[in-house]
């Protein structure tokens, strides 16, 4: 039975594969090897997720540590998709480093192997809702990394193509986020009696959604003022952190959210 104590046995080889993939991508012209290693890492990591799922006898999506697990899985996946689509040499390195951060947090703050799942979460909506959101977060995380890179890069204005890449990542991330939001609304109607109750998690999800919506429209409006658009991306991602886990610490959300499932 796989439990959290076995995590490093999977995370370490997966990380090594991702590192190798990132290295081959960085060297250029080693596309097959870069993809192969990244994919191998993903499979190893997926094996842990599936094993944990089986041994917990419930989807591993309840606690923060469990959502971090999905996030560190989706980051290299999104990195790989972006790499295949646009061939940026550095993208796999970035997704690997980001995945490492979340793996590190999980190793340093180990999660409890807790099998219980409260009745409110026992629904067919649970799995798609969380996966779609985590994938959206990973896409938007990749867009944020790209934005940071373009903003911090000295003496070179972003090329139109690089901005297009941000737009594409945001567009995919935003469409998944919309699906997550709406599936959440449909689920809430079945579980809590109303599709939208302005629960703190919902309020912050709405804020984040509006912010990315502003970015998309801003990019269509002012096609050439890049830095403002990139800064909007950074602010949006900061606010997204509030929706994801920040509300667990926010004074205005204490004791009123029905969205707190982690101990």
């Amino acid at each position: 039975m796989i439990s959290w104590t076995d995590f490093w046995l999977f995370a370490l080889p997966a990380f090594c594969c991702w590192l190798a993939g990132a290295w081959f991508a960085w060297r250029g012209n080693r596309i097959a090897k870069a993809c192969g290693f990244t994919l191998a890492g993903l499979l190893i990591f997926a094996a842990f997720i599936i094993g944990l799922w089986v041994s917990l006898e419930r989807p591993p999506m309840r606690t923060m540590g469990e959502t971090r697990l999905w996030y560190s899985f989706f980051l290299p996946l999104v990195g790989l998709m972006t790499y295949l689509r646009w061939r940026y040499k550095w993208i796999l390195s970035f997704s690997t480093v980001l995945a490492l951060v979340f793996i590190g947090v999980n190793l340093l703050k180990p999660d409890i192997h807790n099998k219980t799942l409260m009745p409110a979460l026992q629904s067919p909506w649970f799995v798609p809702h969380v996966i779609v959101y985590m994938f959206a977060y990973a896409m938007l995380g990749a867009a944020t990394v790209m934005a940071l890179y373009l903003l911090l890069r000295k003496n070179k204005r972003p090329a139109a193509m690089e901005m297009d890449m941000c737009d594409n990542l945001v567009q995919i991330g935003f469409s998944f986020m919309t699906l997550g939001l709406l599936s959440g609304a449909l689920w809430a109607k079945e579980a809590w009696g109303h599709y939208w109750s302005w629960d703190p998690k919902e309020t912050w999800a709405a804020i984040t959604w509006f912010c990315y919506l502003s970015y998309i429209h801003y990019r269509l409006h002012r096609k050439t003022s890049y830095s403002i658009a990139l800064i909007m991306l950074l602010i949006s991602f900061l606010l997204l952190q509030m929706a994801w886990y920040g509300i667990n610490y926010l004074p205005s959300a204490q004791g009123v959210s029905v969205h707190t499932y982690s101990m």
Binding site: P200, A206, F210, S214, H217
Partner: peptide
């Protein structure tokens, strides 16, 4: 226009942000 869209979306975002920060 886009100007109208952006200004209305972002001001709605701002008020929702206040709503997120002040206990309702």
């Amino acid at each position: 226009s886009y100007q109208a869209a952006i200004s209305s979306i972002s001001s709605l975002a701002l008020l929702t942000l206040v709503m997120g920060l002040v206990k309702q």
